[in-house]
Write a protein that binds this DNA or RNA. Sequence first.
DNA 1: GTCTATAGCTGGATAGAC
DNA 2: GTCTATCCAGCTATAGAC
Lengths: 223, 223
Amino acid sequence: MREDRRQLRRNETVREILDTALEVMAEEGVAGLSMAETARRMGMRPPSLYQYFPSKTAIYDALFERGMRETVGVLEPYRAELSRDPRGALLAGQQATVAWAMAHPVLAQLLYWRPVPGFEPTPRAFEPAVRQLELLRAALRAAVHAGQLSPAGADEDGVALYTSLTAGVISQQLANEPSAPVQEGRFTRLTPTAVDMFFHFYAPEESESDDSDLRGRRTPAAD
Amino acid sequence: MREDRRQLRRNETVREILDTALEVMAEEGVAGLSMAETARRMGMRPPSLYQYFPSKTAIYDALFERGMRETVGVLEPYRAELSRDPRGALLAGQQATVAWAMAHPVLAQLLYWRPVPGFEPTPRAFEPAVRQLELLRAALRAAVHAGQLSPAGADEDGVALYTSLTAGVISQQLANEPSAPVQEGRFTRLTPTAVDMFFHFYAPEESESDDSDLRGRRTPAAD
DNA sequence: GTCTATAGCTGGATAGAC
DNA sequence: GTCTATCCAGCTATAGAC
């Protein structure tokens, strides 16, 4: 299974192609990626790219997978804290995710929106997304277990609502104020507030309080 | 200022061009709009389009403006209810907005995301967005006045958080499950829950409760 | 107002030499 | 593994006849 020199060099080139493609997308838009332009910037002729990627879609797919792996990787450092303080870990993870998205707006758009006409990620590229969702659900369950969250906060709706909060803050910031620093962005700076709002809504019932039945209910009757 | 027959016919053609462009975008992606294809579908030759729009960007801009006007228009029916029950009006408006976005995914993407490389809306096209934001702020202020919301819910952060909720639900649904009915979508069906969560977080202080200082605060110290 | 014709360009992708 | 050469297609946009 050893990677010999040839293979190493090849992987380096693959990485360089993806990096260059990201540069092109940053300037021309996510949907504006061009194989020819990518090749030119690398000092290559366009046909040579096809030795590494069989099509433009393949490049998008590789970038999608890279982005997904990176967002999952961003959460890794906070897994350890999950057993001590799940809520703290969730907030830290949320802030790290939002910060990553602002630092990598092109990848974030590829992941959170669907800006490229013909492109659908392959199952292989999508797999990290599944793991990320499982990780989030596990974290929310840990918060329930620690008495920081009502059980409804970790069920299907709770998870969906939490991901909507993430997507909402990131989408608004990217669409309206893409180059603001995370701490100052009109939307990204509200990340802790959003997490608070979530935990407040799904606050666990306190036995000594008598209006607790109003909180953390699964789906309030509000039609 | 009368619109004679010639002008009327022209405006009809303009509308037809925009409708056809939307069809093309629905099939080819928002960034996949083609002047030539639009013309062909109308039984025209491509150059004739330039009698109505000087460039592709002009079509995007007209569509952006149309979309903005429509989303504002969707809220119109609920203005009357603002004085009676602001919270009810906000919820109804939110549901109408989400339903509109799902019924017009192409326009919604153009408004909520930035999927088209070179395109930035002109101030003229953007103007309805400003009105929409003012309307939202007025609605939130009405809720404060009616004792349904703490003052912090209508300040700058509250407005930004509310729009993030809207954008989050719509983004997640469009990206992950675009063709689900609003009532059944994993994310869109949580619209009432999201609004509840917002109002719960910014609940007005109740004088007889003694833990009220924990709710509705502007920006909780949670770093 | 609509057309033909066309300029001018860029793109994705392949064949086959080196 | 990289190249030259090339195919073929598509596009935006303009000039100028009808």
